[in-house]
Design a protein around this nucleic acid. Structure first.
Lengths: 173, 173
DNA sequence: CAGTTTGTTCAGTCTTGACTGAACAAACTG
DNA sequence: CAGTTTGTTCAGTCAAGACTGAACAAACTG
């Protein structure tokens, strides 16, 4: 049961919804909730703190926050004069998401190539289908790369106009 | 244990790899293997046939092939003079995959909007983060739409040059 | 040094949901 | 009609893996 002293019901609902959303994408439920929590707060959070706010064990937070950090969806930051670990949502998270799609598509392309090689002679329909799949992957990868570049350009442009409130660890209270 | 009389080890490996690939994307293992099998063969397959080839129960094939058909990843076709159900891989499958991404992004955007509304006053960092997420979703949806259009154009162009071997149910032996 | 705080790891529990076999329904066959 | 073929549904089993508490390790404090 979460310690909801610091979270409104609306915030809890958001965390739960984000949790479910990311759970679709190979994160555990708690991993997803951690992302939701970190999206919502204005300062980096410690492990014990996150465990309390979500009402889960420290062990779970420790295990799952590391997964998100390995994926560069969160960042571990230090606070001066405090030896605890703090985490915040990574500014690169959405970019990493786009990159992950490319990896997935490349993977599918490799499988399709192996499949094409495994066809029986004279399987013309399957041959055309797998050839089209390989082509589709090639196309999709090029599209995804272009999207990444356009996103970076767009972000650069926006940030030059409206620099984001820079949230480094030392600026907190 | 599969009846591998009609499948080479390379083909079985392909089916297994495709199975795992699609299992990442909210399909059951067997659902994924069915897609792999249908990608590989040159003619529509019946339920009993698929069950035998994969070494799984008819019940499982029945349940899982329906899921793939509902997603329009496979198509049910009839063979004249045969009352059994046959299935083949859908030519629209990859298009449906692209469309599914849009749905997922739209979903994330809605959640982000709810989150933005749930913020505490004065949470400037979180506000900027969620506003950026909403903008990211908008951007990604536009990109995905454009990709779909370009894929359709590309496919039309290729098919006008090299019409695919049309595999309707009646043409099989 | 002993004691505290913090993070990690691991064995065990529990939940989820995939898969099966069997019962059933529907369509057909003689 | 009785019998067969085919597909679906459902209760039950089983496996995967998420989560926990407890033990542990490491860094710090007095």
């Amino acid at each position: 049961m979460p310690d909801n002293s610091s979270l409104t019901p609306e915030q809890q609902e958001f965390i739960e919804r984000i949790g479910l959303y990311f759970a679709q994408y190979h994160l555990s439920r708690i991993g997803g909730r951690l992302l939701g929590l970190l999206l919502l707060v204005d300062r980096p959070l410690g492990i014990e703190e996150m465990a309390t706010m979500l009402g889960v064990s420290r062990a779970s937070v420790s295990t799952n926050i590391r997964v998100t950090a390995d994926l560069d969806l969160t960042e571990r930051v230090g606070l001066p004069g405090d030896r605890r670990d703090y985490y915040r949502f990574s500014p690169e998270a959405w970019l990493r998401g786009l990159e992950a799609r490319i990896t997935g598509t490349r993977q599918l392309q490799r499988i399709a190539e192996q499949g094409l090689a495994a066809l029986a002679d004279g399987d013309t329909v399957a041959d055309a289908r797998l050839t089209e799949l390989i082509d589709f992957c090639e196309f999709a990868i090029a599209e995804q790369r272009a999207t990444i570049i356009r996103w970076q350009e767009r972000r650069d442009k926006l940030h030059r106009a409206h620099p984001p409130p820079h949230q480094d660890a030392a600026t907190d209270d």
